Computed example of a mutant assay.
Amino acid sequence: MVKPVPPDTEFTIRELSKEFDVTPRTLRFYEQKGMITPMRRGASRVYSAMDRARVELILRGKRVGFALDEIKEMLDLRFIDSRDPQVLEAAIARFESRINVLEQQREDVERALEEMHAGLDWLNARRHENEPSEEIKRRARAFEALASARLEDWTGMPPSSS
């Protein structure tokens, strides 16, 4: 977690690049997209605490799957101040849609983790030359079926039988 900084703190492009592990080119791209607005001192860019906070939000949004245009729209707080019901309804719909997608992804990850743990249990039992329990065998078969189905989805071809 990145620590809050006093509002009057300033940063160089090098400092922000290092702090967030991004390239200076990435920060210039965000500037070009209008997502951050550093001040200029001669040829140098000087980033404010607000710019730094926006970079943190941009990167967090990217990690959870938002497109840059969606992040830019969320950073543009004008829609929050809008009294136009259509603007607010559209923003609410986008947020609800993204929440639904993220919740489904979380379910998928949790299910995949359960299946991976079952596979690991089965492998550990095999390594110790123990006969796996019926529950482990059942979960391993479920894992194999899921892996097979996903392989077919990704490749468009049924898995080869070995």
Rank of each mutant, 00 (worst) to 15 (best):
V2G: 08
K3T: 10
D8P: 01
F11L: 07
R14S: 14
E15K: 13
E15V: 10
K18W: 03
F20P: 05
R28S: 09
E31G: 06
I36M: 02
T37S: 14
M39W: 04
M39S: 14
R41S: 15
R41G: 12
A43C: 08
R45G: 06
S48C: 02
D51H: 04
R52W: 05
A53S: 11
A53K: 11
R54W: 04
L59M: 08
F66P: 01
A67C: 00
E70Q: 12
E73Q: 12
L77P: 00
I80S: 03
I80L: 14
S82N: 08
D84N: 11
A90W: 02
A91M: 06
A91F: 02
I92P: 00
A93H: 13
I99W: 01
V101Q: 07
L102F: 00
R106S: 07
E107V: 04
A112T: 14
E114R: 15
E114F: 13
E115G: 10
E115F: 10
A118R: 05
D121L: 13
N124M: 10
R126D: 02
H128E: 15
S133Q: 05
E135V: 11
E135I: 08
I136Q: 15
E144Y: 09
L146T: 15
A149M: 11
T155I: 04
M157Y: 06
M157S: 10
M157E: 11
P158T: 07
